[in-house]
Amino acid sequence: MNVAVERLDSEWVDSWCKRVSAALEPLMPSFLETHVFPPGENAVALATDESHGATGALVDLTPIPSDLTTLYWVISEISLPDIENGYFIHSPATVAEHFREYGAAEVDDESPGVVFASDGGGHLFAVATSGRVWRSTTAAWFDDFEGAAVSMQEFLEQISQRIADQS
């Protein structure tokens, strides 16, 4: 069933980045006490001229969903190795490299998805042109994908909630 989803807005993404960065700040100093090992580098890297260029190249290469273009207009990549088992939104250059190597991900009966993220367990996240986000059922590129979020915004909100749950 195709459900119309509101498209991602760059101002919302910018606000989300600020909220996530603020939520991570107090979490990391207490991480060592809680987990008995030091935290990794948990960061939201904002877009640069270089990442904008890589996004343009990605657009030329793939059937990139508009929400992913919007996301990459604001961020370059996100690394959250210490949130649950880890969340990583790959840079547009990495997404392009993976697309060249593996192609699009087949996600259910929707259009092929573009893999843009992974978790610390090796599961992949792909976004289809509909805006839905899919998660691989195993740590393999060509296995089945299941629905993870109805939109990129919902996917990002899920990550925010996982950060809040860890506080």
Rank of each mutant, 00 (worst) to 15 (best):
residue 18 K to G: 13
residue 19 R to Y: 10
residue 20 V to T: 11
residue 21 S to G: 13
residue 22 A to H: 15
residue 24 L to P: 04
residue 26 P to F: 07
residue 26 P to C: 04
residue 29 P to L: 02
residue 30 S to F: 06
residue 32 L to I: 06
residue 33 E to L: 08
residue 34 T to I: 07
residue 35 H to M: 04
residue 36 V to W: 04
residue 39 P to A: 10
residue 39 P to L: 05
residue 40 G to S: 11
residue 41 E to C: 13
residue 42 N to K: 04
residue 44 V to E: 06
residue 45 A to K: 14
residue 45 A to G: 02
residue 45 A to E: 13
residue 46 L to S: 07
residue 46 L to N: 04
residue 48 T to V: 05
residue 48 T to A: 08
residue 49 D to M: 01
residue 49 D to H: 07
residue 50 E to Q: 14
residue 52 H to C: 10
residue 53 G to M: 10
residue 57 A to W: 00
residue 58 L to K: 09
residue 58 L to W: 08
residue 59 V to W: 13
residue 60 D to Q: 14
residue 62 T to Y: 09
residue 62 T to H: 13
residue 63 P to I: 00
residue 63 P to S: 09
residue 63 P to A: 10
residue 64 I to N: 11
residue 65 P to M: 03
residue 66 S to L: 10
residue 68 L to C: 10
residue 71 L to F: 10
residue 71 L to Y: 07
residue 75 I to M: 12
residue 77 E to D: 12
residue 78 I to N: 01
residue 83 I to V: 15
residue 84 E to N: 09
residue 84 E to A: 10
residue 84 E to Y: 06
residue 85 N to Y: 12
residue 87 Y to H: 12
residue 90 H to G: 08
residue 91 S to N: 09
residue 94 T to G: 03
residue 94 T to E: 15
residue 97 E to N: 15
residue 100 R to N: 11
residue 101 E to G: 04
residue 102 Y to I: 08
residue 102 Y to K: 13
residue 104 A to Q: 10
residue 105 A to D: 07
residue 105 A to W: 09
residue 105 A to M: 07
residue 107 V to K: 01
residue 107 V to C: 14
residue 108 D to P: 00
residue 109 D to C: 03
residue 111 S to W: 03
residue 111 S to E: 12
residue 111 S to H: 06
residue 112 P to T: 07
residue 113 G to M: 05
residue 115 V to D: 10
residue 118 S to K: 06
residue 118 S to M: 02
residue 118 S to T: 05
residue 120 G to E: 00
residue 120 G to N: 02
residue 125 F to C: 05
residue 128 A to C: 06
residue 129 T to F: 11
residue 132 R to Y: 10
residue 132 R to V: 07
residue 133 V to F: 05
residue 133 V to N: 05
residue 133 V to S: 01
residue 133 V to G: 03
residue 135 R to L: 09
residue 136 S to R: 01
residue 136 S to G: 02
residue 137 T to M: 13
residue 139 A to G: 05
residue 139 A to E: 08
residue 142 F to T: 10
residue 143 D to G: 15
residue 144 D to W: 07
residue 149 A to V: 03
residue 150 V to Q: 02
residue 150 V to N: 07
residue 151 S to E: 00
residue 151 S to Y: 01
residue 151 S to W: 01
